[in-house]
Design a protein around this nucleic acid. Structure first.
Length: 599
DNA sequence: ATAGGGTTAG
């Protein structure tokens, strides 16, 4: 038969079948399809005919029967995509996962992957319980189901649905599905990116418990996660103990990550510690690369140790490596921090000679330098240069300017910059609002500052700890510590964990207003929250007690603070002098003991 | 099919 005739013949057949179907008394569950025909139409991918053919049938019943028929799952999937409006994966979960199971058995993994990607993206409300339930009901094929679960975790990770990803990871263990490193690593990556380091540690521990073999990438991501929250000793332990135990050698990335951790959160003498890691890495026969040097330059720059940064810069050239955009940017930033703005500008000019093109980040560092010196005209000129260089200002460029204007009390200018970023289609972020809020707090305009807290949430931005700290401090400085206290409650409700600054701002507010009982309650609360009172906490309390003429109590606090090994700062001495000595009270302190323990 | 470096806000 001629192909054309064949088609015609088949079309007639379809019409006939269609009639017979519609003539049958309607009973969806017992509805029988002309399965051979459906299969053939599927196989020939004649979608529109198939759709016409099945139009009046109960969709779920068709889906069911087609699956049972053993038709090619790829074709079924394609058909489902054709009739998207009838096919709602969420409503036919069990069948959907049976189909995915068939795809897994047929090794059509990329099809499952693509499907699940869209699935987790579009089904906002879908629960993992429902998914795992359907999965285990639909098929008992453990290997196939494991593959699906791996790809589900991967889909969550890729879509940054970290909460659901961790939950699926957990359920996979409960149901006995085997996960592999190829889906765990992307999950770790997403968790590190989102700053959910508690979950990074959880997933890592679980991987080891479930004998999912971590690879070099796994370790490097865990190191990064730990460094991000300042758990530097733990990060180091991963290199020294865990990796060795698994027979995996750390590479230059492992060490660079750790070095960067020390540069950013290493505390006092951090650059010495960073330097020690470099030596350790070299002792293990791993040569530092350009990235290592860039990390160090950035670290020294932030430490305002430009001579050391320059030394590293020179080391790069000596090793026949070329400085790159990162190198120059970090050095420019360092120069800006110590106020060497002309030298920073010179280096910007020299970049072109090195064949390097400055980018927005480089400009941001420079603009920030001028802003911090309140040289707003020069900052504006650089801002205009960005456009002339064919670059676009970033949200950080705008934030830097908004912050500088607000701090200078130039609220009108700050607002104009804010408007211009909106006009240029750059979306404000949480920091943008934090800068604006800080400016208003500084002006004592707490009403407007609180309004912005609301406004940012209307804009879909989440207030973070900095937002709340700024507002709490602002309210306390205006004598509104009770209101500030309600913001602390709000933080807990939003699962934002307060830090030392949060407690200390509020503590200072209560003490200023003479509300010592509130201050003491807060101290108890902060200790309950795992935050030990620090020097600033004691400063607030000592000042509070002194102001109420409870000088003996203040003296007791002073001694308590020293006994705990806390180091008094300039503020402490001023409080002692202004609030205690001026009233004729001489603190009774074992200074000698203190001097020994602090030296 | 995955890891490291540059800029802002309390």
């Amino acid at each position: 038969m001629h192909p054309r005739l064949q088609i015609l013949h088949r079309s007639k057949q379809i019409v006939r079948t269609l009639c017979s179907l519609t003539c049958v008394p309607r009973n969806p569950t017992s509805e029988k399809l002309n399965l051979p025909l459906v299969s053939e139409l599927l196989a020939k991918q004649r979608w529109s005919e198939l759709r016409t053919h099945l139009k009046d049938s109960d969709f779920t019943s068709v889906f069911h029967q087609v699956l049972d028929s053993g038709a090619d799952p790829v074709l079924i999937l394609r058909y489902l995509h054709c009739c998207q409006k009838d096919f709602n994966a969420a409503h036919n979960l069990e069948l959907t996962f049976r189909l995915l199971g068939s795809l897994a058995i047929a090794k059509r993994y990329s099809k499952i992957r693509a499907f699940l990607h869209g699935f987790v993206r579009s089904n906002e409300k879908l629960s993992n319980s429902a998914i795992f339930n359907s999965l285990s009901l639909g098929s008992k094929h453990l290997a196939a189901n494991s593959i699906i679960v791996n790809l589900l975790v991967l889909a969550y990770a890729k879509n940054l649905k970290t909460h659901l990803g961790v939950e699926a990871f957990q359920k996979a263990g409960d149901y006995g599905f085997k996960l592999v490193v190829f889906s765990c690593n992307p999950l770790l990556r997403a968790l590190v990116k989102e700053g959910e380091i508690g979950n990074v540690e959880f997933v890592y521990r679980e991987m080891i418990r479930r004998r999912i073999r971590p690879n070099l990438y796994t370790f490097n991501m865990v190191i990064r996660g730990l460094c991000k929250v300042g758990k530097l000793e733990e990060a180091k332990d991963v290199i020294i103990n865990d990796m060795k135990a698994w027979g995996i050698s750390p590479n230059v990335v492992s060490y660079n990550t750790l070095i960067d951790g020390y540069c950013k959160l290493g505390g006092l003498g951090k650059m010495y510690k960073a330097d020690a890691i470099v030596k350790e890495m070299m002792a293990n026969n791993i040569r530092p690369n350009k990235c290592t040097y860039n990390i160090l330059i950035s670290g020294f720059g932030k430490d305002e140790n430009v001579p050391a940064a320059v030394k590293v810069f020179e080391a790069i050239t000596k090793q026949d490596l070329k400085p790159d955009e990162f190198t120059c940017c970090s050095l420019i930033n360092g120069l800006c921090r110590i106020g060497e703005l002309d030298k920073a500008c010179d280096l910007l000019g020299e970049m072109r000679g090195l064949g390097l093109k400055p980018n927005v980040i480089t400009y941001n560092a420079l603009i920030n330098g001028f802003c911090k010196k309140k040289m707003m005209k020069r900052a504006r000129e650089l801002f205009d240069d960005i456009g002339r260089q064919g670059l676009e200002p970033s949200v950080i460029t705008y934030n830097t300017l908004i912050d500088a204007y607000s701090k200078d009390g130039m609220m009108k200018e700050a607002y104009e910059v804010y408007n211009s970023m909106l006009e240029r289609g750059v979306s404000p972020n949480t920091s943008t609002f934090n800068c604006r809020i800080a400016g208003l707090c500084r002006q004592g305009n707490m009403e407007m500052a609180m309004k912005l807290l609301h406004e940012m949430e209307v804009d879909g931005l989440r207030a973070d700890r900095i937002t709340y700290n700024t507002l709490i401090d602002g309210l306390c400085k205006e004598g509104k510590s009770r209101k500030a206290g309600t913001l602390l409650d709000e933080m807990f409700k939003k699962r934002l964990s307060p830090n030392h600054l949060t407690y200390n701002f509020l503590m200072d507010g209560y003490c200023r207003e003479g509300n010592l009982s509130a201050a003491l309650n807060l101290r108890a609360l902060m200790e309950k929250g795992g935050k030990r009172p620090n020097t600033a906490t004691y400063n607030a309390l000592i000042k509070g007690y002194s102001k109420k003429d409870k000088l003996e109590d203040a003296n007791g606090l002073l001694n308590e603070m020293l006994e705990k090994g806390l180091v008094p700062n300039q503020t402490t001495y001023e409080i002692v002098k202004e609030e205690m000595m001026k009233k004729g009270f001489v603190p009774d302190i074992d200074w000698h003991l203190y001097n020994i323990s602090s030296s």
